[in-house]
């Protein structure tokens, strides 16, 4: 379980996280929603140690990770996988090189064994015979799938997703949702996603948390959030320009 307590982060004069509290259950899909620029990416960057908070704590099981030294944090990071918004695939490597990269860096497996695992993971995300392709030759949807294959190649306990459906058409978004559900149900991995794609969220979430002005203002299951009467939540879920959230 991940427990985030009173997390605060400021960039220059702009306060992005303002005392954020959240509990993420093990083996569940937690989706964090909120407007663009509200600090969703900043939050998951704190969870994986790309950013350190100004104050507050993040517990992974019983370990407090925000104050860890970089070397110790690297051991913690091996328990994570992350899918970036644009895939963040290495341009200079083939698909197989990308997916197999963590195995090559952190295990003593032979190239043949790595390739077998890579092929299996690619098949799991619905891709076959793409091992020798370069990232530049892949479509947006394929890049996300390859990114997901790389994120799960080490069988991590926790996978973070940064806007997994941004830039995809609705059909491809739905197929990514199926992919998220398929891969999560098999291994019962903890998935943490940030998105503002509401249909996608309703389809996959075990728990939804809404981030607004640097805090989690409401959280609950899909049904609970659909029934939530907080005007900020209602405006966001219904996608209305009029309401307490000002468009600027």
């Amino acid at each position: 379980m991940i427990k985030i307590i009173d997390l605060k982060k400021r960039f220059n004069t702009r306060r992005v996280l303002n005392g954020l509290n959240l509990e993420i259950e093990q083996g569940k899909i937690t989706v964090i929603i909120g407007r663009s620029g509200e600090g969703k990416s900043v939050l998951i960057k704190h969870i994986i140690g790309l950013l350190r908070p100004d104050s507050g704590q993040i517990f992974l099981d019983d370990m407090e990770i925000t104050s860890m030294k970089e070397k110790d944090f690297n051991e913690v990071r091996k328990r994570f996988g992350m899918l970036f918004q644009g895939g963040a695939l290495f341009d200079s490597m083939t698909v197989a090189g990308n997916v197999g990269f963590p195995l090559k860096e952190h295990t003593d497996l032979s190239d043949d064994d790595i390739l077998k695992i890579v092929t299996e993971k690619l098949r799991r995300v619905g891709l076959v015979n793409v091992e020798e392709m370069m990232p530049a030759d892949l479509s947006g949807g394929m890049r996300k799938r390859v990114g997901l294959a790389r994120a799960i190649v080490m069988d991590p306990e926790i996978v973070l997703f940064d806007e997994p459906t941004t830039g995809l058409d609705p059909i491809m978004s739905d197929s990514v949702a199926d992919l998220v559900l398929d891969t999560q149900r098999v291994l019962k991995t903890t998935y943490i996603l940030i998105t503002h794609d509401i249909p996608f969220t309703y389809k996959i979430a075990d728990k939804i948390a809404m981030l607004h002005e640097g805090r989690i203002i409401e959280q609950g299951t899909v049904e609970e959030m659909k029934a939530n009467q907080n005007p900020i939540v209602r405006q966001f879920l219904e996608g209305r320009a009029e309401g307490p959230i000002k468009v600027y």
């Binding site: 690297n74 091996k78 992350m82 963040a88 341009d91 860096e105």
Partner: peptide, 18 residues
């Protein structure tokens, strides 16, 4: 620079590669 702006350097960090 391209690796930085396309988050490839961040990806290295997340894969516990310095």
């Amino acid at each position: 620079g391209t690796m930085r702006v396309t988050e490839q350097i961040d990806a290295l960090f997340t894969m516990a590669v310095n």
